[in-house]
Each structure stands twice: as structure tokens, then as C-alpha cells.
Design a protein around this nucleic acid. Structure first.
Lengths: 218, 218
DNA sequence: AATAATTTTTAGACATGGCTAAAAATTATA
DNA sequence: TATAATTTTTAGCCATGTCTAAAAATTATT
């Protein structure tokens, strides 16, 4: 069994490993992600290494073991299932869920999480479009591309976001952009890289920055 | 904001105060309830005293302040709402909920608990028949009596249990006794104090001990 | 290659919450 | 009312998880 702190470190290392795809995750990177100090990270890493969660050699960063990865995906599974619950059942908006899910993900009860999965109808994605690992820790890979790479005339379904800040998510809400919505590129403006898109019955213009934070499934 | 440990102490003191109705709760009683040592209790009590949660004088036990009581009922509200959720939505049986609710009660999010209350339809009782405080901390007092005090021919609705051990709850399940069920006393056996009761269409005999652990609303 | 800059680790400290053992206070008993 | 028994507190120690400051190792630069 792991403490909340240990779980937070495991999750952070997993996320850093996934989206940096470098072999060893640096002490500094972990410290930055968790808003703590490098010295604290070194201490924790030693402990996780003793517990066979990570492989660690001084000055060389850390890598999750298979056991560590499984532990990480299990925490992520809990986090994302709770997010679905909060949005679907308790009227949370997608920018409000993260903080609460950060707490709920540490609740220890295998039955709880399996029953929650059943209760929610085995959702495949969380409210941000990120995939929910199954109880074995398997993550289905989703074919998705940034809206920004679509050409004029192409279209797809909105399946996720890259930036999950409140500002961005609330902006999307205001524009009527949500997961599952169909988006078609009407025009790409060469001057500023902005997009004219069709969303349901209306057309709207979105900046290049927005287009680079929205994932689409073609 | 209180730590999980602090919350556990506050809840323990509240429960001890309610069902002992003595003015000062002793260090030893708290230690026993929390399965810890008296010396640890003394330490924590000093801290809670500084935080204006309890009134404490050396060697005289503690009393919750109004603020402390409000804090306690809020934790209890969360605990009981989660219990309802687990039983009604996630197929937990009433002897499985306690341990998980002990964890869930510490989640910090006012919105979460209010929305949960709405989602569950503002339940008034938890799965053991105990009342759920409202968001102001008010507990409605329920007129209830032990089944054991009923006379031959009297009847009532099962509204709660005193003993919440798994063994007892599972025994009740096996007998078909549950909250909301109507129970009528057919016969009281003077010899061993056992009861012959009518439960729905069948009659069954229950011991005096059982009758002293079942609450009835006449 | 030598020095500078950066990263990482170590050493020592602190807060929380727990423990044991001994001292102090209270309560019970003879 | 003394003495005994019990309860409560104190003092000191430990584990977890954090921090700062300094040392050590690595990487970058001239």
C-alpha cells in the first residue's frame, strides 16, 4: 500500500515518462511537476526504489518498473472514473473536476472503483477525452490529431484537450465546444493561422493557439 | 481546514459526548475509541484546544465548542451521505460501507457534498438508520425505541441498529430484516426473553439480544 | 581541457502524529 | 486520612515528508 505522497510521485513520473518519452525522468522535472524541491524528490525516489516501484541510479533519473507502471495506471483509472462521475452525475463542469479527483483517487477500495465503473457504464474516456485504463491497467491508444493539422474541408469529432486549465476549458464551454461535437474546417487563414470552423449549425473563428490544443478523431 | 487525524478526533469526541452525555470526555475514552494511546490524545487535544475546537483543562477531559460541534456534524453528514451512495448506487451491503466511508468523509469539497445530497434525493437516514445532518449541521431527532421494549401485539418500522458489526448486520440480512421493514411482536417468551415476530408474511423467532439491538419507530 | 553553470545529492533541521516510560495529579480504598 | 490504584500529562524518541544550504557530480562553455 502506498501513501498519498508516494502515489502522487508515481503518477507524476508516469505522466512525465509518457509525454517526454525519454528513458530517465530527472529529479528536477519531478520537482517542478509536483511543486516541490529537488532534494525532497531525491529522498522520495530512494524510498520508491526500495519498494521496487522505480529503477534509480544516482544522477541518472528514474524509470518506472512494470509494477510501478501498473500502480500508476491504477491511480489514473481511479482519477478519471471519478472525473466522469463528477461531471455526469454531480453536475461538475470539466474545469472543476480535477482538484476533487486528485483527492478521490487516493481512496483505497477495489470494490468501490469496480462498482463505480459499472455504475457509470464502463466509460472509455474522462471528461477531457483522456482514455480510462481498464482494471488490468491497459490503456487503449486513441487515434487522435490536433485540430490544427486538419486541412480545409476535413472534419472530425472533438475527443480531447491538451491544455486543461480552467481558462481554456471555460472558453471552450462558452464557444459551445465540447467532447463529442463534430467540427469541420471551413477555412484556414494563412495570415494568423486561425481557423473558420463549422460547429453544429453555426460557424465560428478560432485562433491557431486554440486549434493546437484541441484533439480531433477523424 | 483540519487534517484527517484532527477530523477523526473531533468525530470521536462528538460521538462519545452524544452517547455518554457526560460533560467532559476523558483522555482514556478517546484513546480507546481511536485505538491509540492516552499520551497521543493529550497532544492532539492541546492542538484542538488552540484551534478553538474543544475546551480543555488539564485532567478534566474535553468538551466540543459550538464550532467543534458544527465541524463534527459536518464530517458525520459526509460520512452518512457517502454510506447512502455506496449502498444505493454501488451495491455495497450495509456491513461493507463503514470502512470506505471513513476515507470518503475526509474529502474536501463543499460542492461535492451538496451535489451528492441532491443526487441522492436528500436522504434523511443512512443505511443503518442514523439521521443525516443538514448542511447547517442540524440533526433531526428521531423517536425510536428498542424492539425489546415493545409489548405483545405492538408493531413498528425498523429504523436502525445499535450494534453495527458485520456479524450482526449479516445476520439481519439472512433473516430478511432490513430498514423500513414492518415488524410485529406476536409473542414474548418470558423464559429467555426471546421474541416471536411477524416480518412480512412469515413468523420468526429472535433472541433477546437481537431485540436489544434493533430500533423501531412506532 | 579547464572553468563555469547547472543539476543532483547530502546533511541537518522542522512539523505532524505517533509511541514508551516516568512523573504528576486525581480518585478509590483501607 | 493516608496509601494504593488509576488516570493523565510530560519528556524524549521515532517515522514521514518537507525544507534550506552546502557539497558533489554532471553538463556546457570558452
Amino acid at each position: 500500500m502506498f501513501s498519498q505522497s508516494e502515489e502522487n510521485y508515481i503518477k507524476a513520473i508516469y505522466h512525465l515518462a509518457v509525454d517526454s518519452s525519454v528513458k530517465g525522468i530527472s529529479t528536477n522535472a519531478i520537482a517542478k511537476k509536483l511543486a516541490t524541491k529537488a532534494s525532497s524528490v531525491t529522498d522520495m525516489i530512494k524510498k520508491l526504489s526500495e519498494k521496487k516501484v522505480v529503477v534509480y541510479k544516482k544522477y541518472q533519473g528514474v524509470t518506472l518498473t512494470d509494477f510501478g507502471k501498473k500502480t500508476a495506471t491504477n491511480i489514473i483509472r481511479k482519477h478519471r472514473l471519478w472525473e466522469v462521475f463528477l461531471v455526469e452525475k454531480l453536475n461538475f463542469s470539466w474545469d472543476e473536476v480535477h482538484e476533487v479527483a486528485e483527492q478521490l483517487e487516493h481512496i483505497k477500495s477495489p470494490k468501490l472503483i469496480n462498482e463505480l465503473d459499472i455504475f457509470l457504464g464502463f466509460p472509455k474516456r474522462d471528461p477531457h477525452g483522456d482514455p480510462i485504463p481498464d482494471s488490468e491497467g491497459n490503456l487503449q491508444i486513441i487515434e487522435k490529431s490536433l485540430l490544427a493539422v486538419l486541412n480545409k474541408g476535413e472534419e472530425g469529432i472533438c475527443v480531447g484537450v491538451d491544455d486543461t486549465s480552467s481558462e481554456f476549458l471555460q472558453f471552450l464551454d462558452k464557444q459551445g465546444i465540447a467532447l463529442g461535437k463534430r467540427i469541420k474546417v471551413i477555412e484556414k487563414e494563412p495570415f494568423d493561422g486561425s481557423f473558420l470552423i463549422q460547429l453544429e449549425d453555426k460557424e465560428l473563428s478560432i485562433s491557431n493557439k486554440i486549434a493546437n490544443n484541441l484533439y480531433i478523431q477523424k
